[in-house]
């Protein structure tokens, strides 16, 4: 029982990171119907930036993370303006491939700044643990859960109660109608990219807490892809829930690795993808996604 609960707690921590990255994917998808494959690039760029910023002594981990998130958000905003905006109206496929190109560039540059040695985000938790009765939980995982909860609530408030949030929901509903009502669709696109970039940087910082950052760190962000498929591409609650589900499933696969030996070593690496494929066979639009109605 302890093992199960520990795996669960561990998974919630991992899952919060996936949920934050997945939220970025979904926000961009909702505003412009594009899956941005550049999210892993923004995440690793954010992490590397934070590892440098944290060396400024008065910033601290949280200061570095916030500043890193803002800077990556601005970078994402600039990239959207320069590269994605001219592509509006072109096939979605072409835009998605451009984001792959962006990802390659961002990732290569970020990796070049990692250099030959590993880097650390300098988080205050390391691998120290918290004892809740007989269950042990990593402090960094608790911190990730708390931060993700705060950010999700902030986002919810933003979408529900602010003018810009209303504009973003309107664009998600119908771009042309929103444009006709005076909503600046361009500003919405820019803001959605900035939000996604900032979220990726924060998520990356928590994923890097307690571990070292090197050239093999970036695939963490790719687990957000099964998450968004599982939750449905256009569902924000779906992204959060599916993020936690995938995180817990990975941790369970790690905890019960002996029972999953038929999946080979490290089954947790492929469990998310297998779950995603199974779900897609049954529900092609994910658990909470909107079924598309096609008109000819």
């Amino acid at each position: 029982m302890t093992k199960l609960l520990e795996a669960f707690a561990d998974g919630l921590g991992r899952g919060s990171v996936y949920a934050l990255i997945a939220l970025g994917f979904v926000i961009i998808y909702k505003s412009s119907r594009v899956i941005s494959f550049a999210q892993p690039g923004f995440m690793i760029a954010g992490v590397v930036l934070v590892t440098y910023l944290v060396q400024v002594s008065w910033l601290g981990f949280f200061g570095a993370m916030l500043l890193g998130a803002v800077l990556i958000g601005l970078l994402a905003l600039g990239i959207e303006r320069a590269v994605i905006r001219p592509m509006i109206g072109r096939p979605i496929f072409a835009i998605a491939i451009i984001t792959i190109g962006l990802d390659i560039v961002l990732r290569t540059v970020a990796h070049a700044y990692i250099g030959p040695l590993v880097r650390h985000v300098g988080d205050p938790w390391g691998t120290s643990q918290l004892h809740l009765g007989s269950v042990r939980m990593d402090q960094r995982h608790l911190a990730a859960v708390v931060t993700a909860t705060v950010l999700v609530l902030l986002l919810f408030g933003f979408f529900r109660y602010t003018r810009m949030g209303l504009a973003m929901r309107a664009v998600a509903e119908d771009q042309e109608a929103a444009l006709a009502q005076g909503v600046s669709v361009g500003a919405v696109f820019a803001l959605s990219w900035a939000l996604a970039g900032g979220l990726a940087a924060v998520a990356g910082s928590f994923a890097a807490a307690g571990v070292s950052v090197d050239n093999t760190f970036w695939p963490v962000a790719l687990y957000a892809l099964p998450v968004i498929i599982l939750g449905g591409l256009d569902s924000l609650p779906g992204a959060v829930l599916a993020g936690l589900v995938i995180g817990v499933l990975r941790s369970l696969a790690d905890a019960y690795v002996d029972d999953l030996s038929w999946l080979g070593e490290n089954p947790s690496l492929i469990v998310p993808w297998l779950v995603m494929m199974l779900v897609l066979v049954v529900r092609p639009y994910g658990l909470f996604g909107t079924r598309e109605v096609e008109r000819v």
Binding site: V34, I92, A96, I229, W273, M277, P284
Partner: peptide
């Protein structure tokens, strides 16, 4: 045949990861 567009792209991407492990 059940999926379209970018959903298919992500599924085939998953295939590469599963394949790499196999």
């Amino acid at each position: 045949t059940r999926l379209r567009g970018l959903y298919l792209a992500i599924v085939t991407l998953g295939l590469v990861f599963v394949g790499e492990r196999v």
